[in-house]
Simulated scan of single mutants.
Amino acid sequence: MSHLPLAFRGDRTLLSLDLGTTTGWALHGADGMITSGTVSFRQGRFDGGGMRYLRFTNWLTELDRLSGPISAIWFEEVRRHAGTDAAHVYGGLMATLTAWAELRGVPYDGVPVGTIKRHATGKGNANKDAMLAAARARGFSPADDNEADAIAILLWALETRGGVR
């Protein structure tokens, strides 16, 4: 795994992701602005098994081209999934993300779920509503819990220097 820089300069583009079929994202641009949203990587009816991951790769490349270059990436590190399908999708997206980052020399790191929730809400087991409320309290308007989680990851990275002390 690539290691993240010890400190960030404000003029870097930083990306955080909540990986899943509906992926939440938050981006700290080189101009200091934070933007966020969600993007769907749902399989189409006639898609082959790899199309979800190809679309994810293309989305990352386009984001890097339009808003980058991306200097560092954080993602929610999930250790337990509710179902097999979710685990497979997460694993495929994580493999795609890490390969994409390695090819470009972009450092990346996973952040444990409890760490993100504790930083955002004070509780390591906060529910979706608490995560949404925490993002709104910080001035964001997330569409769903995926976007709220991505915002929380980005704020954690900015406020803790990505966990490097």
Score class of each variant (00 low, 15 high):
M1A: 02
S2E: 00
S2R: 08
S2K: 06
S2G: 03
H3C: 04
P5L: 03
L6K: 14
A7Y: 10
F8W: 07
G10A: 11
G10H: 10
D11C: 11
R12E: 13
T13R: 05
T13L: 05
L14A: 07
L15W: 01
S16M: 09
S16Q: 02
L17E: 06
G20P: 01
T22F: 07
T23G: 06
G24L: 10
W25Q: 01
A26Y: 03
H28L: 03
H28K: 05
A30D: 05
D31E: 12
M33C: 11
T35Y: 10
T35W: 12
S36P: 04
G37Y: 09
G37D: 09
V39S: 12
F41C: 00
F41Y: 02
F46G: 06
D47M: 14
D47H: 14
Y53D: 01
Y53P: 04
L54D: 13
T57L: 14
T57Q: 04
T57R: 14
L60E: 07
T61R: 11
R65L: 13
S67T: 07
S71G: 03
I73T: 05
F75R: 08
F75I: 07
E76Y: 10
E77P: 08
R79W: 15
R79V: 11
R79G: 06
A82D: 12
A82Y: 14
T84S: 13
T84W: 09
A86Y: 09
A86S: 11
A87C: 14
H88M: 15
V89W: 04
Y90S: 06
G91C: 13
G91W: 12
M94N: 01
A95T: 15
L97M: 12
L97K: 01
L97F: 09
L97H: 05
T98S: 07
A99M: 10
W100A: 08
E102R: 06
E102I: 02
L103I: 09
V106I: 15
V106Q: 00
D109L: 06
D109P: 00
V111F: 04
V113N: 04
V113K: 01
T115M: 13
T115N: 04
I116C: 02
I116P: 01
R118T: 08
A120Q: 03
A120V: 01
T121C: 06
G122F: 15
K123R: 13
G124C: 11
N125K: 12
A126N: 07
A126G: 08
N127H: 12
N127F: 07
D129E: 15
D129G: 09
D129C: 04
A130Q: 12
M131W: 08
L132S: 04
A135Q: 09
A135L: 01
R136C: 09
A137R: 15
S141L: 13
A143E: 05
A143F: 07
D144C: 02
E147R: 09
A148P: 02
A150Q: 06
I153W: 03
L155M: 06
A157H: 08
A157Y: 05
L158M: 15
L158G: 11
R161M: 11
R161V: 06
R161P: 02
R161S: 10
G162E: 03
V164D: 05
